[in-house]
């Protein structure tokens, strides 16, 4: 595996971050250094190793209702609300 080209601005876009040009430059060089270190994993043979599957155990929730928050508590942290709805800029598809 060779050090992949990391397009910091593209990836930041996926994560809904907008970076300043300074941040982009700085992160690009820092992250490629880090990725170069991570690349060393490529040298470890993992052909027969299954991915880690944590032990399964039957701890599932029974289908029995528990109390919800009050509307007031549910909305108490909302930055913008009206008529008990949480407001955001208009969603356009």
């Amino acid at each position: 595996m060779s050090v992949p080209k990391l397009n910091v601005a593209d990836v930041a876009g996926l994560a809904r971050l907008s970076l300043t040009p300074d941040e982009t430059t700085k992160f690009s060089s820092q992250l490629s250094q880090i990725l170069a270190h991570m690349e060393t994993l490529g040298q470890i043979g993992t052909g027969d190793v299954p991915e880690v599957v944590p032990p399964a155990q039957p701890a599932l929730r029974k289908d029995i209702p528990t109390p919800s928050l009050t509307v007031e508590a549910a909305l108490s942290n909302a930055p913008a609300q009206s008529n008990d709805l949480i407001l955001v800029p208009k969603i356009v598809e």
Partner: peptide, 29 residues
């Protein structure tokens, strides 16, 4: 921000096998 970008990258299409899945396997070791 640095870590979110790194984490987004290692899961992204075309890279998750080489990074995320590979790391899961080495975690097993």
């Amino acid at each position: 921000k640095r870590r979110i970008i790194l984490g987004t990258f290692v899961l992204s299409q075309g890279y998750s096998d080489a990074f995320y899945r590979k790391a899961q396997k080495v975690r097993g070791l």
